[in-house]
């Protein structure tokens, strides 16, 4: 029984993800991208769906067609014909896919936020001044 409870505790630790803080971060990022009271976000990932549901200014969409922003982690999640605004948690998508205006991912053990100026311009998006340091002119 002791071993079982220890195993249960360890499995909980392995699944640890700071959903509460992540929801605050995504809330700030998406409200900076779109000046709306409530922003509709679609994500096919269960983990990020929980994050969106916890965020005060974000509403989780059932389908991508009604979404203002699509949050993705894999290229297979997005149809090539879909031209909606994409935000990704995968740096490789950010580098390769022109629809991805920004990304939030881990780099060298630190969470990193990045936006590409040309893609923001193409979507006619202007972020608040506090986000200036996250905007780059060239892909890393």
């Amino acid at each position: 029984m002791k071993q079982l409870s220890l195993l249960f505790f360890l499995s909980l630790q392995l699944l640890a993800f700071d959903t509460k803080t992540a929801s605050k971060i995504f809330d700030k990022i998406f409200t900076a991208m779109l000046p709306k009271q409530s922003i509709i976000v679609y994500t096919p990932h269960k983990e990020y769906a929980e994050v969106i549901e916890m965020a005060p200014s974000l509403v989780l969409a059932d389908t991508y067609t009604e979404a203002d922003i699509i949050l993705v982690d894999h290229l297979s999640d997005i149809s090539p014909n879909n031209m909606q605004t994409i935000f990704t948690t995968n740096p490789s998508i950010f580098k390769r896919d022109e629809r991805a205006v920004g990304a939030f991912y881990w780099e060298h053990g630190r969470p990193k936020i990045i936006f590409l100026q040309s893609r923001l311009d193409a979507k006619r998006m202007t972020l608040s001044k506090s986000f200036n340091r996250y905007i780059v002119k060239k892909l890393p």
Partner: peptide, 26 residues
Amino acid sequence: DESMDALLDTFTHKSDLSEKTRLAYA
């Protein structure tokens, strides 16, 4: 009014804590 820096620090710190617990127990 939590700044983005503070939020990112919290996010890193909490992830670090889970990582340390994992290392300590496994």
